[in-house]
Amino acid sequence: MAKPYRIPDYRKLYPEASEEVIAVLKTTERKMQYQEYDLKAEQAIVDQDGQTVTFIPSREDSYKRLLEQDVYFVETTDSMEETAIRNIQSQQLHKALSLLTDDERDLIEQLFFEERTERDLAVEYGLSQRGINKRKQRILKHLRELLKKI
């Protein structure tokens, strides 16, 4: 593992190695230092003329350091309760969909699962877009009533 800002004397460690190998070892060591220390360390730049000190924050932070600075992350996964509720609602919806007539189920499947537009379906069924919309609203109202009963 790299030690901060200290490149070992590879000539002493590997006396039989060629200059090419020594150069690669030094380059690799410097890259390791850059990744392990330079990216994670803050830097202070002192301007002697202006008598100012500028701090440049690290470009990479560890989770531990962020917690020390009271930086917290929002949990993006759902809780077990939310997952269970969503599963129950999904089961109820599938049960209610199965209680619809074939024509009603077909319209809902095309609008919501196949993401077809009301206008497309109106052309296919030979109806107006408003007629498809009214059918959809009637079916959704019927679904809500079925869900209340389930």
Score class of each variant (00 low, 15 high):
Ala2Cys: 05
Ala2Glu: 05
Pro4Asp: 15
Arg6Tyr: 14
Lys12Phe: 06
Leu13Arg: 12
Glu19Arg: 07
Ala23Ser: 14
Leu25Pro: 00
Thr28Tyr: 09
Met32Cys: 13
Met32Leu: 15
Met32Phe: 10
Tyr34Leu: 15
Asp38Asn: 15
Glu42Ile: 03
Glu42Pro: 02
Asp47Arg: 09
Gln48Phe: 04
Thr54Pro: 00
Phe55Val: 15
Glu60Pro: 04
Ser62Asn: 15
Leu66Gln: 14
Glu68Thr: 10
Val71Asp: 07
Phe73Gly: 02
Glu81Tyr: 07
Glu82Arg: 12
Gln89Thr: 04
Ser90Arg: 15
Ser90Asn: 15
Ser90Ile: 10
Gln92Thr: 02
Gln92Ile: 04
Leu93Val: 06
His94Ile: 01
Ala96Gly: 04
Ala96Met: 03
Ser98Arg: 06
Thr101Met: 09
Glu104Asn: 08
Asp106Phe: 05
Leu107Gly: 07
Ile108Gln: 02
Glu109Arg: 08
Glu109Cys: 09
Arg116Lys: 13
Thr117Val: 01
Ala122Cys: 07
Glu124Asn: 03
Gln129Asp: 08
Asn133Ala: 11
Lys136Phe: 02
Lys136Ser: 03
Lys136Val: 02
Arg138Tyr: 07
Arg138Ile: 08
Ile139Tyr: 00
His142Met: 10
His142Pro: 00
His142Arg: 14
Leu143Trp: 01
Arg144Phe: 03
Glu145Arg: 10
Leu146His: 02
Lys149Pro: 05
